[in-house]
Design a protein around this nucleic acid. Sequence first.
DNA 1: CGGTCGCTTCGGTGCCGGCCGAAACGTGCC
DNA 2: GGCACGTTTCGGCCGGCACCGAAGCGACCG
Lengths: 251, 251
Amino acid sequence: MTNLLATEPAGTPAAAVPVPAAGDADVAAAARLIGEPARATMLEALMAGKALAAGELARLAGVSPATASEHLARLRDGGLVTTVATGRHRYYRLASPEVAQVLEALALVSPPRPVKSLRQSRAILAMSGARTCYDHLAGRVGVGIHDALTARGALRVGPDGYELTAAGELYLVGLGVDVTAARARRRSFARPCLDVTERRPHLAGALGAAICGRLLDGGWLVHRAAGQRGLRVTDTGRDRLAAEFGVAVEP
Amino acid sequence: MTNLLATEPAGTPAAAVPVPAAGDADVAAAARLIGEPARATMLEALMAGKALAAGELARLAGVSPATASEHLARLRDGGLVTTVATGRHRYYRLASPEVAQVLEALALVSPPRPVKSLRQSRAILAMSGARTCYDHLAGRVGVGIHDALTARGALRVGPDGYELTAAGELYLVGLGVDVTAARARRRSFARPCLDVTERRPHLAGALGAAICGRLLDGGWLVHRAAGQRGLRVTDTGRDRLAAEFGVAVEP
DNA sequence: CGGTCGCTTCGGTGCCGGCCGAAACGTGCC
DNA sequence: GGCACGTTTCGGCCGGCACCGAAGCGACCG
């Protein structure tokens, strides 16, 4: 880049029209939806990947069911969440992994919230070890797995994100990861996702979700609390993470 | 993932506190800043990577200098832009590539703005061919270069994003790209960035910026209008893009 | 050293939208 | 069928903030 600082202040009159609208997408509309504390809290709760009922989201956001319903309707109209009616409940979930990506990207540039309680600082510390990021693994464990796969030459750059090398596929299948099913899904197969706490990439996409599911099913990791993103490494998980991925987890 | 739909509606009482605040970052605060149309327009204008004066941004956003000044102060306090005073002008620019990433991610989930004029539809069509994405290349040309580098085995997955293989470095240096300078910069060296129009990755980071700068300096590409993101492929650029990267550009 | 220009600060106005209680709607349970 | 429950819709209140004009402050210019 030659000259980032504009030399001429007034500049050549870029365009006669006052606002060329730059692109095609109404960025402000989506950001406005996320920019309301109650809605942001709901979306963060949905980052766990599960679908939650309207009432549950109202309780989490600390607003009345009426208010939550309005918020959720806005989020639905804005394409950020989808809804499915089941009985007299209505379950909401994030509309797409892209929405989760926006929230992750926002978290990277958002001001840190002042830590109010010891309880909260402990929770943050716990989250930095292992947690889910939408539907895949994040935290030190997530980054460690990404590092291990990288060092092992399991991943290569492809035209549509990461691809799995033959050696990598053999390795993951050996661990019980259903690579074929992950590849069959319509969503992005594998891609890096910048970890908020570690500031280094971990593995996202269908493959990342498959690995996360395998480690949960296999009992390597368990949720600290139902519906929360925080994960705890079990004793067997600690052994196997060290043995298979070379990831050391302090107790 | 085993059971995405919560089986028990009320769920186990996840936490006694009404709002565990989930993480650490105040996502809503940053989103609220972007969620105002005038501010969003300013930020999009800054996506071109150049620093712009306050008055220029006011004109682009279609608000008075007084209003723009308030907006810019908020963006500065929120850490989304930085300012540098030069004489009686004050130049603003995006605070970090992460901010650009947020805007890109938002564009992926934002509702398409209704196309009002033929002029605008032509502009969008032109942008889809070649444009800058903050400080690197995007559009079909940007994605094409990513594909070419991938096919050539120039990129490999590293623990901190993409790395350049020996062959890749030799190749890019041969094209006049200052790889050493790019590697020396403190920011992320190379990483994929999902293209908004193509929905496939192009190359971001210091290396992406270096390639973009080289192609602009070498006269392969020129800005369609000063301070705008749209790029035009020159005649020599068309020949060289085809020869070096195998990227075909229709006139 | 006034004059002009660019930017910011200050007051004041108006509107958008977040909030709740009450009521309506639909569903499941007894 | 009636009741309880979860959710949505409606009405009304109220706070925050986007907006502008005018004034204040520095910086360059003649």
